[in-house]
Simulated assay, not measured.
Amino acid sequence: MTTTTPTAADFRSEWAAWHDAHEAARASAHGFLAITSIRWLTGTPERFDDAPGAWSTSEAGPVVTLDDGESIEVDGVAVTGTHRFGPLPERSSTTIAWQDGDERVLIEVARRGGSDVLRPRHPSNPTRTGYTGTPSYSPDPSFAVAAHFEPFDTPRSVTVGSVVDGLQHVYEAPGVLTFDLDGPRSLLAFNGYGDGLLVLFTDRTSGVTTYAANRSLDVPAPDASGATTIDFNRATNLPCAYTPHATCPLPPAENRLDVAVEAGEQLPA
């Protein structure tokens, strides 16, 4: 069997296609740039200027009570009066729709750090309409490094901080990724999409040319021998780099790399 190594031109082309798609998703009509506020729900019903109804929550989950003439769309069905969402699992969310004049607004109802939150997404939000793109380092094949996944005997629950003071997130870590990048390195890996892995990290560029709090990277599922590739060229900013209405996690302490990872997304423009 013959393995073909991508040329530098192919590598750049594949990265450009990936990055263009990532930027398009980020700037989509109801992406996180469209979020106009984050509302921490309490037991007292409250009305907000960017969402319909009066909102509250309890152990039974979030509730919205709509006034006469107000309606929302839940799973494609128009709803009036009072709607109960039921208890939400941690880090889960559900999305409803609201027609605000000529604008279709999506409203995320979510559970974060033990609290229920509301985040309306208005396509006309200036954070979205004024977005001009995120600069990135030029793609460099030397930052796509071979890695080995070393699983734990039992996955570990890992608590990390958040950009929101006092808020914590809990992730399941199945193991550690080891690799060489100007010396031996390792990253604690969390469960990612499908069978893939997720890493949150900072490095010597953090707060200098890249976002200070964190960067995120999806890693392909390791093969049977534990082999995979960490492509730092695809390191991305989390929503907290763009909006104050985010609850992004911070990297675990062991994921602060003592090397300059001059690859991936840089500080937002």
Score class of each variant (00 low, 15 high):
94 T>A: 15
29 A>H: 04
159 T>W: 10
89 P>K: 15
103 E>A: 14
41 L>C: 07
64 V>I: 09
243 T>L: 07
252 P>N: 08
225 S>D: 08
156 R>D: 10
238 L>H: 02
151 P>D: 06
66 L>Q: 06
173 A>C: 01
224 A>F: 11
115 S>R: 14
80 T>V: 07
156 R>I: 14
214 N>T: 07
174 P>L: 12
154 T>G: 09
190 F>I: 08
234 R>M: 06
176 V>Q: 03
122 H>R: 09
223 D>T: 01
264 G>C: 13
83 H>K: 02
218 D>P: 01
144 A>P: 07
260 A>K: 00
251 P>A: 14
117 V>G: 08
267 L>A: 11
214 N>W: 08
101 G>S: 14
156 R>P: 13
182 D>Q: 12
177 L>Y: 01
205 T>A: 05
251 P>F: 04
184 P>T: 07
191 N>A: 04
169 H>I: 11
167 L>R: 04
35 I>T: 13
186 S>F: 08
210 T>D: 11
16 A>P: 00
130 G>P: 11
53 G>V: 10
16 A>L: 14
93 S>F: 12
14 E>W: 02
56 S>F: 07
233 N>K: 01
254 E>D: 00
96 I>Q: 15
65 T>I: 05
176 V>W: 13
91 R>M: 15
229 T>K: 00
53 G>S: 04
268 P>C: 13
134 T>L: 05
36 T>M: 11
249 P>S: 06
224 A>D: 15
128 R>A: 01
165 D>Q: 14
72 I>K: 08
255 N>E: 05
226 G>D: 06
221 A>M: 06
227 A>R: 02
173 A>H: 03
227 A>F: 05
37 S>T: 10
200 L>H: 04
188 L>T: 07
206 S>N: 12
71 S>C: 10
123 P>L: 08
36 T>D: 11
195 D>Y: 13
96 I>F: 13
117 V>N: 10
103 E>T: 15
49 D>N: 08
90 E>T: 06
26 R>N: 12
131 Y>W: 12
185 R>V: 12
82 T>Y: 12
268 P>F: 01
139 P>M: 03
92 S>H: 11
263 A>M: 01
173 A>P: 06
206 S>T: 08
12 R>F: 13
204 R>P: 03
69 G>L: 06
28 S>G: 07
34 A>I: 05
218 D>R: 00
261 V>N: 05
